[in-house]
Simulated scan of single mutants.
Amino acid sequence: MFEVETDDGTFYAAEDEGERGDEGAFLVVYRTPDRETRYGWYCTNCESVDNAMDAMGTIVCNVCGNYRKPDEWDAAHE
């Protein structure tokens, strides 16, 4: 794990937990190093925690646009 400094404080990115994005991996970020409280995602492409995830599992970085496709696909939403 490594520390991630943000305006909201220090968080911890788990290098062994993540998802593949189209421009770089998204790593799970925790509030504390003991991994008890999950904070969100860390984009390895632009080193940001400013990301969004929807109910389908899509992750999008709000800074660089790195994108992870959803786990399940529902064609009715197209």
Rank of each mutant, 00 (worst) to 15 (best):
M1V: 10
M1R: 05
M1D: 13
V4Y: 01
D8A: 14
D8C: 02
D8W: 05
G9L: 02
A14E: 13
D16W: 05
D16H: 13
E17M: 14
E17L: 13
G18W: 04
G18L: 03
G18K: 08
E19H: 12
R20C: 02
R20N: 11
R20E: 15
D22A: 00
G24Q: 04
G24V: 13
G24W: 03
G24A: 05
F26R: 10
L27A: 09
L27G: 05
V29E: 02
V29Q: 01
Y30K: 04
R31Q: 14
R31D: 11
T32W: 04
P33M: 02
P33K: 06
E36N: 06
E36I: 02
E36Y: 03
T37L: 01
T37V: 09
R38T: 15
Y39D: 09
G40I: 06
W41Q: 08
Y42N: 00
C43L: 08
T44Q: 05
T44I: 11
C46I: 13
C46H: 11
E47N: 12
S48I: 10
D50T: 06
D50L: 04
A52I: 15
M53E: 15
M53S: 14
A55P: 03
M56V: 00
T58N: 03
T58Q: 13
V60L: 09
V60I: 15
V60N: 05
N62D: 13
N62G: 07
V63Q: 06
C64W: 04
G65I: 13
Y67C: 01
R68G: 07
R68E: 05
D74T: 11
A75H: 07
A76H: 00
A76E: 07
H77P: 00
E78R: 09
E78Q: 03
E78K: 10
